[in-house]
Write a protein that binds this DNA or RNA. Structure first.
Lengths: 329, 329
DNA sequence: AACCAAAATGGTAGCGCTAACATCATGGAT
DNA sequence: ATCCATGATGTTAGCGCTACCATTTTGGTT
C-alpha cells in the first residue's frame, strides 16, 4: 500500500492539512478535541510524515554525514559511538561512511553527502590533501574535522593533544629517574609523529635536559619499525634508559628487541607507547601507554558541528590523552 | 552563498530547466554543444543537484538504513564493510546506526528511517521482539535481517549457518579420535545457542553416537560462564575428551579452567570455539574455532535487499563458517 | 521548395509539506 | 448588543526537481 500523506490524514479527520501539520510538529494552537481526533487518524493510518518533503521546504534535513577511514580499525567505532550518541539525542540521523582508507572514496562520499543536503559533515582523520579537502568541505553548510587542521572558515577542528600526551609520557619517565630517553619517532611525514616529537622535546628541555641529536630516531609505524629503530638507538647510545614509542606497535617492536637482547623491561629499559590498542594490555610486560579519548573525539566533534551549523566558529578543541601506567614503565 | 538551483543553471546557460535535467541525468537527447555549454555552467557554479527535491518526485532516495547492535564489537564493522562496499558500488548511501545494544533505540531508529523514506533497511542481529520488529520493518519498502528469522513478506534473511558450523566442529573432534565430547551451550535463550546445539547433536547422532543427557551444559556467554561450565561438565564426566564452546569467550574460559586443573590442551582435552575473535589466535594454545563470513553477511544482505526492492522475494541465504584449525584441537 | 520523421527543447503540473498570511469563531469587557 | 483580543482554522504559494506532453528545430527526401 502506498504511504498515507498529510492531505489524506486531513481529509479523514475533516480538517485542513495545516492543522494536521500543526499537530504533528506541535506548533501553533489546536483545540484539544481536534488534536485528539487527528492523532487517532494518524494512529489508524500509521501515517509517517515525509521527511523528504519537509526538508525541501525547511531547508534542513536533520542528517549529518560522518566519514571514517576504517571501521575495522578499533579506534574509529568509539569515535562513531560518541558522535552517534550526540546525534541521536539531538534528533539527527547520521550518514556514516567507511571509506576503507581510500581517498578517492572519501571524495565521492563527500560529494554524495552534498547532494543529500546533509546539514553538516564530520570527517575523521581525512585522507585527502589539504586543498581538495577544503574544497569539498566548503560545499557543506558546516564541517568539523577530527585529528587534522583545516581553515577555520571551512571547518572546525577537534583533535587529540599529541604534544601534551608525549610530554606526559616523558615526564613520567623522568620522574621514575630515567635521564637518557630516546624516542622512536615514526615516519617523518606523519602529523602525529611531528606533534609527539615536539612534545618529547618540550618535556626534555622544560626539565633542563638539553636536546642532543641522535635521540630522536625515525622509524616505520609498525612493530618491525620499532624493532629495528630500537636496535639503532641502542647501538648509538649504550646508556639508553628509556624509549618513548610513536605508537603502541612501535613500542611493542622495541619491547621485543629489548627482550631478545637480554634487557629487562622496565628495570633496564622503560618503554612507553601511544594509543592504548588492545594488544598493549596483553603484552608481557603490559605496555604503559597513552589512551586517546576516542568517544570524546566523536562527541565533541558533533557538539562543535551543531555550533557551527548555528553560524558560530568555536576555537579548536584539544582532548588530552590519559597516561595508562602498566608494567613497562 | 546559497546553493545554485537547476533554474539558475538553466538561466545562465540560456536553456530550460528540463534540458539541464536531461544533461545531469544523462537521459533524453541534447545537442552536444548545448550539453557542453551546460556542463561548463555547472562547473562554474559548482551546481549540485538537490537530491531532496529529486527524491520527492522520483519516490526513491537511494539511501539504505543499516542498523547494527554495537560497532565496538569487532564482529559488526566487517558486516558494515560488506554492505558499504555493495552500496557504494550501486550508488546508494547508507544510514548506519549503532544502537548501542538498546532495543528502544533500535525502535526509534527504524521509525526515523521510515520518516527519511529510505529505500530499504538491513537490520543486523535485531534486538527487538519478533512481533514489534515485523511491525517496524513492514513500514519500509524492503527489508533484510541478518542472523535472525522474519516473515518472508516482511523481510529477507541472511544468516550464518550455525548448525553447519557446529557439525563441522564436532566432526573435526571425532576425526581426531575423541569420542566423549561435551558442549558448553551458552544461554538457553540464545538463538545461536540453540542452532549450534542442534548441529552438535546432529553431528554426534549422524556418526552413530547416541546423545546422552548431561553432555550439553548451558552457561553464560562469557569467559566466566565457560570456566564454570567446564568444571561442571568435567565433574559429571571424568572421561571428557573434548569440549565445543558456544563461542570463543566460553571456549577461552574452558581453556583456562582446564589449564588450572593441570589438563593439557589439546592432549588431554581438545577445545573448539566459535566466532574467531581476535583473542582466539592470541591464546596459548591458540584456539581452534569457526570463522563467520562477516563481510559476506553484509554483502549478501545488501544484494538481497536490492532484489527485494525490485519486488522479488529470494530465499534465505545461509553462509557457511570456516573451520580455523589452530592448536587447541 | 515542400515535406516529414527524428532530434532537440520547452511548458505545465505536481511530488508532500510548511511559511506566511487570511479568515473565522469565541467569549469576556464595555 | 457591540467590540476586539485571542484562539483556532483555512488558503495560497512554492521549496527544486522531473514526468509527461507539446512544440520547435534539424537534416535529409522527394
Amino acid at each position: 500500500m502506498p504511504k498515507v500523506t498529510i492531505t489524506e490524514v486531513a481529509r479523514r479527520a475533516g480538517v485542513s492539512a495545516m492543522t494536521v501539520s500543526r499537530v504533528v510538529n506541535n506548533t501553533g494552537m489546536v483545540r484539544p478535541e481536534t488534536r485528539e481526533r487527528i492523532l487517532r487518524v494518524i494512529a489508524e493510518t500509521s501515517y509517517r510524515p515525509n521527511g523528504i518533503a519537509r526538508s525541501l521546504i525547511t531547508q534542513k534535513t536533520m542528517t549529518i554525514g560522518l566519514v571514517v577511514p576504517d571501521l575495522t580499525n578499533p579506534f574509529f567505532p568509539d569515535v562513531v559511538r560518541g558522535a552517534e550518541d550526540q546525534a541521536f539525542e539531538g534528533g539527527y540521523t547520521l550518514y556514516i561512511s567507511d571509506i576503507a582508507e581510500l581517498p578517492a572514496r572519501e571524495e565521492r562520499v563527500l560529494e554524495r553527502f552534498e547532494a543529500s543536503r546533509v546539514d553538516g559533515v564530520i570527517v575523521c582523520a581525512p585522507r585527502l590533501p589539504d586543498e581538495r579537502l577544503a574544497e569539498l568541505l566548503s560545499g557543506h553548510p558546516a564541517a568539523v574535522v577530527i585529528n587534522r587542521e583545516a581553515p577555520p572558515k571551512v571547518a572546525g577542528t577537534v583533535a587529540n593533544d599529541d604534544t601534551y600526551g608525549a610530554m606526559r609520557a616523558v615526564h613520567h619517565l623522568l620522574q621514575s629517574g630515567r635521564e637518557h630517553i630516546g624516542m622512536l619517532a615514526g615516519p617523518p611525514a606523519s602529523r602525529a609523529g611531528r606533534l609527539r616529537s615536539r612534545g618529547y622535546e618540550n618535556a626534555l628541555s622544560a626539565s633542563g635536559h638539553e636536546m642532543k641529536s641522535g635521540w630522536l630516531e625515525p622509524c616505520e609505524s609498525n612493530e618491525h619499525g620499532g624493532y629495528n629503530g630500537f636496535k639503532r638507538l641502542l647501538k648509538r647510545h649504550k646508556n639508553l634508559q628509556a624509549v618513548f614509542g610513536y605508537n603502541d606497535l612501535v613500542a611493542l617492536g622495541a619491547l621485543q628487541a629489548a627482550q631478545e637482547m637480554g634487557l629487562r623491561v622496565p628495570e633496564d629499559i622503560a618503554i612507553i607507547g601511544y594509543d592504548d590498542i588492545r594488544m598493549a594490555a596483553l603484552a608481557t610486560p603490559a605496555l604503559t601507554t597513552l589512551r586517546v579519548d576516542r568517544y570524546g573525539l566523536g562527541a565533541e566533534a558533533f557538539k562543535m558541528l551543531l555550533i557551527r551549523i548555528s553560524g558560530k566558529q568555536p576555537p579548536a578543541v584539544l582532548l588530552r590523552p590519559e597516561l595508562v601506567v602498566r608494567q613497562s614503565a
